[in-house]
């Protein structure tokens, strides 16, 4: 097991170089002037474009540009984010906690709802519950994230006014910035509780509800589908039949034997759900003006802010590798047939 983890970790540098070299090569499709234009907001700034090209070495070959970037990163400097106007690392520190909270609070209900609906669906195969849950999950899975997000925005923010946009209300954001509100962890949900500000905690949760509902609705649909087919599969397997033949009660068979085994593919899927969520937050954060990584990276991508995109891609890549590693370890724990050596 230990060797397995080490081997997985050795894969991290592969992801790092693979992703960043790919992006640098992509940038070669642009002429130096076009690369310089990504530094420019108004046409007036173009007057001095040759100086801009010179200053940032935009006419140098890809290997020079990549080496310059790598040297910086090795010194702990991830470069400057044009999209936000501050060092990439500062943007990251500012935005990662918000997205992490959002993703985590979406991930847990996604898995729970998915597994629950998937199993009742399978246990009632072709019954009315199965039909309803399947139709609903297929329908949700067919919804573009932005369509669902916009409709929720119109109804619950525009129409009913129940939920806010952004991360906290203006009044609270002022308090957080100015008063003696300590940012212990950077995670607003935790920090507000640690500061004993339950009102801010409720406010933060309130602002996360619409993004979370959007993400859970769409992401859990695929878990439902996999859970259902996985459970159907296990229910027909020999050990379940044996258990039934032994005279065990149906519910015990289902719970103790079938469900446990059916969960195995769901664990693998957990890693991919994280990728799905990371894609999903790009859209949800844009629609709900939620100040996280997704919105930052979307802005960075459109502005060709390579420093931010590279850092973002490296980071999410590493996150996914690590998440998959945990999934594999968990897999081995649940399924005794698997041994990593």
């Amino acid at each position: 097991m230990f060797v397995f983890i080490i081997r997985r970790l050795l894969f991290l540098p592969v992801v790092f170089f693979g992703v960043t070299i790919f992006i640098v090569l992509l940038m070669q499709f642009l002429s130096p002037t076009q690369r310089a234009a990504t530094y420019v907001r108004s046409e007036a700034q173009l007057r001095n474009i040759d100086a801009i090209i010179d200053q940032y070495g935009l006419d140098k070959g890809p290997h020079v540009q990549y080496w310059n970037w790598l040297k910086q990163v090795l010194r702990g400097n991830w470069g400057f984010s044009k999209a936000t106007g501050e060092p990439v690392w500062d943007s990251f520190k500012r935005r990662f906690p918000a997205t992490f909270e959002l993703a985590l609070l979406s991930f847990i209900p996604t898995m729970l709802v998915g597994v629950w609906l998937g199993s009742i669906s399978a246990l009632n195969r072709d019954g009315i519950i199965d039909q309803i849950s399947r139709t609903t999950s297929i329908f949700l899975w067919s919804l573009p994230t932005f369509v669902l997000a916009i409709w929720l925005l119109v109804i619950f923010y525009g129409g009913l006014g129940w939920f806010g946009l952004g991360q906290v209300t203006t009044a609270h954001s002022l308090e957080i910035i100015r008063s003696n509100f300590h940012r212990y962890t950077g995670f607003l949900t935790l920090d507000s509780l640690l500061n004993g500000r339950f009102d801010i905690f409720l406010d933060v949760v309130n602002h996360m509800i619409l993004p979370i509902v959007t993400l859970v609705a769409i992401q859990s649909a695929q878990i439902v589908r996999i859970m259902r087919s996985s459970l159907l599969d296990t229910l027909t397997q020999d050990f379940v039949r044996t258990a039934r033949a032994k005279g065990l009660a149906e519910s015990i068979v289902n719970r103790k034997h079938a469900l446990r085994n059916a969960l195995i593919p769901i664990i693998t899927l957990g890693g991919f759900t994280i990728v799905g969520l990371l894609n999903g937050v790009v859209i949800t954060e844009t629609v709900f003006a939620y100040p996280g990584m997704g919105k930052w990276l979307a802005d960075a991508a459109v502005q060709l802010d390579t420093a931010s995109v590279m850092a973002g891609a490296v980071f999410t890549g590493l996150l996914v590798v690590i998440a998959n590693m945990f999934a594999d370890v968990l897999y081995a724990v649940i399924d005794p047939r698997i041994r990593y050596n």
């Binding site: 619950f156 009913l160 006014g161 129940w162 939920f163 806010g164 209300t169 203006t170 009044a171 002022l174 009102d199 409720l202 406010d203 949760v205 309130n206 509800i209």
Partner: peptide, 19 residues
């Protein structure tokens, strides 16, 4: 629960703050 969370946060115009 969602409704309960929603009601408590409307931000009344604060005369000391311009947004």
């Amino acid at each position: 629960l969602l409704a309960a969370l929603g009601v408590c946060v409307a931000f009344a115009g604060d005369p000391n703050t311009y947004v």
